[in-house]
Design a protein around this nucleic acid. Structure first.
Lengths: 129, 129
DNA sequence: AATGGGGCTAACAATTTTGTTAGTCATTGT
DNA sequence: ACAATGACTAACAAAATTGTTAGCCCCATT
């Protein structure tokens, strides 16, 4: 549980109020989260399927991350009728789907520089330096 | 210092190797980081200017975040000649500048849903916009 | 009767991140 | 003589996140 009177919490709230960028990043930045969103978008939308894709994750941790994504309305949990034991699927909402291309562009940004794109300081990116 | 033999570290490495998306997010997800990138992109590229924009940050913390961004080549530090006390400016690299529009789109994503865009589970995800 | 899904939860421990305190340095203005 | 400025750093403390352990439930199959 977060301590509402801590500097840590207060600073986080300040950033959330300054710009939605900060809340957005905090939603996707938990361990495993963006990878979970990606796998669900690819159709691996069951608890056990996600476990298969992420062999090192524990069930406790996976359940926790899914619950947090659900709390931010990135996904919803749906029981699958007439399954024994009860099956559950995780479906991205439109809010979750909208995130997918943005995460893709982050992925691509990372790849380009990991693949050796030259890094330099632009001479004059905005006519102010 | 990170413990290289901890599960925490090993899992992080696993995600980094799985997709650059995960390293990319980890670069921008530290407290204050995306906001610092934004302010530098807007021309607030001095230590004391960033402090003005982020009144609650401590100098220790600001210096730490800047050093981490520098380690990831998002920005570089440049001494300003003939200043007393020594002035320093922080310049985004092309890698840093490339991040700016992606952070903008995250910001916009957050805003749209904060402003009340309806959230639902798309019947057919391919039709979502 | 025991095992194996499938999908969890609570309590706790380990690790990591963030924030605090108290300095430094070299010069200029009062 | 002394404070102020700009830009830090080391050592430590607080808080948050992540991972571990040990369980639960319900039904089907061996």
């Amino acid at each position: 549980m977060r301590k509402k009177q801590s500097s840590n919490y207060i600073n986080e709230q300040f950033l959330f109020e300054t710009c939605e960028r900060n809340s957005a990043i905090s939603i996707v930045s938990g361990r495993w989260k963006s990878q979970i969103i990606y796998y669900i978008s690819q159709g691996h939308n069951r608890f056990h399927l996600l476990k298969q894709q992420l062999p090192a994750i524990s069930e406790t941790v996976l359940a926790r991350q899914l619950k947090e994504l659900e709390a931010h309305a990135i996904l919803v949990k749906r029981e699958i009728a007439d399954t024994v034991p009860t099956g559950v699927k995780y479906l991205l909402t439109n809010k979750g789907w909208d995130l997918v291309p943005i995460l893709d562009s982050l992925c691509n940004w990372g790849k380009v520089y990991a693949d050796g794109k030259e890094i330099f300081v632009p001479a004059d990116p905005k006519l102010v330096q």
